[in-house]
Simulated scan of single mutants.
Amino acid sequence: MFKSTLLALAASLTLAAAAAAAQAAPEQIDLLTENFPPYNMAADGKNFARDENIKGIATDIIREMFQRAGVDYTLTLRFPWERIYKMALETPGYGVFVTARLPEREALFRWVGPIGPDDWVLLARADSAIELNSLEQARQYRVGAYKGDAIGEHLVAQGLQPALALRDQTNVEKLQNGAIDLWATGDPAGRFLAKQQGVNGLKRVLRFDSAELFLALNKQVSDETVEKLQAALDQMRADGTVNTITGRYL
């Protein structure tokens, strides 16, 4: 009887110690991103990269933020956006960046930011004669957008029917060859992406909305981790680090 009690007590203490150790263990976040220059991009321009082979404004901010917060992380760039967004949404310990913090997404993630601005614009070729005063006027034109992106979703919600591409680079090509009249994208991201494709001088026809870009974390990420990261980012903005990083790319 006494021996059984001791064994039960020992087992109980072992379980309690294991639970305490697990609780005390630092939380690691597996971060996912995509090619979305100048905020995040693979150094070789491909659709898969890991860790130091990823660069960009948001990537550099994220690295510094996690270092200051003392939070462990991994960093992977994958394709397509819909896949990595879904992984962060459904998988504990994951996060995705950068993404627009919209009312319909508010309850889906834990948010850290803002990391940067994103004007939502319609771009046309430099020689285009198109002039618009409202998004409603764009209905008569062929509009291209990026599948799974907040901008494309916004256009659909407004009753437009954009042609959705799996890669935003495809929209640069379609605009240049006349397959679409307007490209719905972010600014400065769209212009930077076009420049990488060798396309300059695109005409900004309309700015129809804007959003702030954030790091979106799975809802099971702890309050402590979120608070550490937000405090680190706030400190970086206050001491000028965010502006310094942005200046490297723009």
Rank of each mutant, 00 (worst) to 15 (best):
residue 29 I to E: 00
residue 135 L to F: 05
residue 167 R to C: 00
residue 124 A to H: 10
residue 25 A to S: 08
residue 219 K to H: 10
residue 200 N to E: 15
residue 157 A to Q: 15
residue 162 P to W: 05
residue 192 F to V: 13
residue 144 G to P: 00
residue 69 A to I: 08
residue 52 E to T: 10
residue 148 G to L: 00
residue 95 G to F: 03
residue 205 V to W: 08
residue 54 I to A: 00
residue 208 F to S: 03
residue 70 G to N: 03
residue 95 G to W: 05
residue 191 R to Q: 14
residue 38 P to S: 10
residue 238 A to L: 11
residue 28 Q to Y: 10
residue 120 W to Q: 09
residue 4 S to A: 15
residue 11 A to D: 03
residue 60 D to P: 03
residue 62 I to S: 02
residue 243 N to Q: 15
residue 16 A to P: 00
residue 180 I to H: 06
residue 133 N to H: 15
residue 38 P to A: 10
residue 230 Q to E: 08
residue 90 E to P: 03
residue 214 F to P: 01
residue 210 S to K: 15
residue 17 A to E: 06
residue 7 L to C: 11
residue 157 A to G: 07
residue 12 S to T: 14
residue 24 A to E: 07
residue 123 L to Y: 14
residue 239 D to H: 06
residue 50 R to V: 13
residue 82 E to D: 13
residue 177 N to E: 08
residue 169 Q to S: 14
residue 218 N to E: 01
residue 230 Q to N: 04
residue 97 F to H: 04
residue 189 A to C: 09
residue 22 A to R: 08
residue 169 Q to A: 14
residue 236 M to D: 00
residue 34 E to L: 14
residue 45 G to P: 07
residue 128 S to G: 07
residue 150 A to W: 01
residue 184 A to S: 08
residue 229 L to A: 09
residue 89 L to V: 05
residue 176 Q to R: 12
residue 141 Y to P: 01
residue 50 R to W: 11
